[in-house]
């Protein structure tokens, strides 16, 4: 029974890690060795050529920067806008509050792909295709983020607001000096969600960028693969460099991250 349990877990973990391990192996193996038949998990040979060539064969540095700006920009702006909206919904009473909340819930239920075609037309007419603002601004707020932070803000005792209000604090002051400082873990978790989601996204940058120099890494690599004779070693080096920041970030804060997902069950 014990053997079976650990056997199943080891096989499961092995299968899950296989493509990631293979990526690393292939990225440091000479092309001739990785396309040899029969294939092997350890084809032998060693090279760093793929890692030096990737910067020249595609504008990898530029696409890396694009990915950082896109994912970082969306994360920073969305955290600000999400938390402002969540504050109003969680801590204030005003006419129309329910309508706004229902709108947020409705947005959560609609598949985001439905807006791609009209957004493409809209961004084209604004001349925002192939721009950072075109990639970032339509995602500057997020229904899930607002919902997530609202739920968190609701758990912060109301007495704290009242105390600050008696001390003459404005609403913005309460938001900034009471609520935000108490929401560090929630903001960090949500920030990670936003950053990973956008860093990893393929369809969005595929639609709103057409120039190689404006693509993010997932789109850039996928299109490079589609357009050239496939050079797997090179692609795997690019893939490793693309995934590395996310894997590192995850390993650093995995506990909080996994708990964040377990408690929200969303996204």
């Amino acid at each position: 029974m014990r053997v079976l349990k650990y056997g199943a877990l080891l096989v499961g973990a092995g299968l899950v890690l296989l493509p990631l391990v293979w990526m690393v192996v292939a990225s440091i193996t000479p092309e001739a060795a990785i396309v040899r038949y029969p294939p092997s998990l350890l084809p032998g040979g060693f090279t760093t050529d793929h890692y030096t060539q990737i910067w020249e064969r595609i504008p990898f540095g530029r696409q890396f920067l694009n990915t950082v700006v896109f994912a970082g920009g969306v994360t920073a702006i969305s955290l600000l806008l999400d938390s402002l909206a969540a504050y109003a919904l969680a801590r204030m009473d005003f006419p129309g509050k329910n309508a706004v909340f229902v709108l947020i819930l409705l947005l959560l239920m609609i598949p985001p792909q439905v807006t791609l075609v009209p957004l493409f037309q809209l961004l084209s007419s604004l001349d925002w295709i192939n721009t950072y603002q075109g990639l970032i601004v339509p995602r500057a707020t997020n229904a899930f983020g607002i919902f997530f932070l609202r739920q968190y803000f609701l758990t912060i005792p109301r007495e704290l607001d009242e105390a600050a209000r008696i001390d003459g604090s404005s609403e913005f002051g309460i938001y900034r000096r009471v609520i935000l400082p108490l929401s560090g873990p929630a903001l960090l978790t949500l920030g990670l969600f936003h950053f990973m989601y956008n860093w990893n996204d393929l369809l969005w940058p595929l639609v709103f960028t057409t120039e190689t120099d404006m693509q993010t890494l997932p789109a850039g690599l996928a299109l490079f693969m589609g357009e050239h004779v496939i050079e797997y070693g090179l692609l795997m080096a690019g893939a490793v460099l693309t995934l590395l920041p996310m894997v590192a970030a995850f390993l650093l804060v995995q506990r909080r991250f996994i708990e964040g997902i377990a408690t929200t069950g969303m996204k």
């Binding site: 499961g12 973990a13 990631l20 860093w199 990893n200 795997m236 995934l243 390993l251 991250f257």
Partner: peptide
């Protein structure tokens, strides 16, 4: 902890990028 993290790892990496490795495999 190791198994949980390993099994969760696919959730944090780009499907579009890993699919390149899968296509190869």
């Amino acid at each position: 902890g190791f198994f949980r993290s390993a099994l969760f790892l696919p959730s944090v990496v780009s499907l579009g990028v890993v699919a390149i490795a899968w296509k190869f495999l």
